[in-house]
């Protein structure tokens, strides 16, 4: 790849990323004050990953993915996870068809483009695992038939950080399958004022399809061509290795606070997310800023903290901050 290649990539990106502004504008019509969440949704969508959203109730999690689905004209499904949910309620099952005297397959709500798995930690492990398997393998087997998931296939799972009683926390191995874990905070006062006023006046914007699914799939291919220099690759690996062996990076104080570091899936997803971020910023190459911008969302659910860290009120966020402040930028 030479200098010309980068220019070509830049041109192609400018051409193929034009829809991002349209999509963002369309979503901003409905979702107010959650630009970070919208940006992360786009990273998940273009990076072919899934997103775990954590936030208090009423922060427009459902509305966000529904709006995204409408703006792309995709099929949207919402599954409310409850303790009595069964895997067949998610993936589908064989149903006896009496007139034909045969079993026919009834597909579950997972057969959509945009799936909202609401409060995923309220369903037992077998249901979680049915969903997460479909997320990872991108195929579902019902009876003796296997069905590939339609592309784009984006799962947005939500978790409520409060009311943890009677929930089934996702095991580390399954959380690792989410490309990003995004934490949503309350909107700013000014934004909430707009939300309140729109609601009182009954001014609900209608979302129109502004992007085609083909555009999304093409953009995904362009994202793959975004150039990542070896220095950036090494920077990503340094960050990942610092989560595993902090003492090797002069972070001895973190050793007793980390129970396990990020997996190789972490480095893959960090690299992919950085590439998508560069694409969103209309750049054909990745710079350290891109890595740092997505680092928290990619790593916060991949670093296990010890009881000691919990006792000292140190979160994985704090650990990532310390790592980023210590690992030398290329």
């Amino acid at each position: 790849m030479n200098d010309l290649d980068i220019k070509e990539i830049n041109d192609k990106i400018k051409e193929e990323s034009a829809f991002i502004d349209l999509l963002t504008m369309e979503m901003n019509k409905v979702i107010i004050g959650q630009s970070h969440m919208i940006e992360r949704l786009l990273i998940g969508l273009l990076g072919n990953g899934h997103i775990l959203l954590e936030g208090l109730p009423g922060l427009a999690k459902t509305l966000a993915i529904n709006t995204l689905s409408k703006a792309i004209n995709g099929k949207f499904s919402r599954i409310q996870f409850t303790p009595d949910l069964l895997p067949s309620d998610v993936i589908g099952t064989n149903v006896y068809n009496m007139p034909k005297n045969e079993f026919s397959i009834k597909k579950g709500p997972i057969f959509g483009n945009f799936i909202l798995a609401d409060e995923i930690n309220r369903a037992p492990a077998k249901v979680q695992s049915a969903l997460l398997e479909a997320m990872q393998e991108r195929q579902v087997t019902i009876g003796d038939k296997t069905f590939a998931m339609k592309e784009p296939f984006l799962v947005l799972a939500t978790q409520n950080p409060v009311e943890q009683e009677g929930t089934y926390p996702l095991p580390e191995a399954q959380v690792d399958r989410f490309m990003l874990k995004t934490v949503i905070d309350y909107p700013k006062q000014k934004d909430e004022h707009t939300i309140m006023r729109n609601s009182l006046n009954g001014q609900y914007e209608i979302v129109k399809p502004v992007v085609t699914m083909k555009q999304i799939l093409t953009a995904r291919e362009v994202v793959k061509t975004v150039y990542m220099d070896e220095k950036i690759e090494n920077y990503i690996l340094d960050i990942i290795f610092a989560t595993r062996y902090p003492d090797q990076f002069g972070l001895d104080n973190l050793s007793p606070l980390i129970s396990f570091g990020a997996s190789p899936r972490g480095s893959i997803n960090l690299a992919t997310a950085a590439k998508v971020y560069a694409f969103i910023k209309r750049r054909g190459y990745v710079i350290p800023e891109d890595v740092r911008a997505v680092c928290h969302d990619v790593l916060r659910h991949r670093i296990g903290i010890t009881y000691e860290a919990e006792a000292e009120n140190i979160s994985s966020e704090d650990i990532i901050d310390q790592i980023l402040n210590k690992v030398e930028v290329p």
Partner: peptide
């Protein structure tokens, strides 16, 4: 310098 380092600019 970033162009040179990360985008193969010469």
């Amino acid at each position: 310098a970033d162009y040179v380092k990360f985008a193969k600019s010469k």
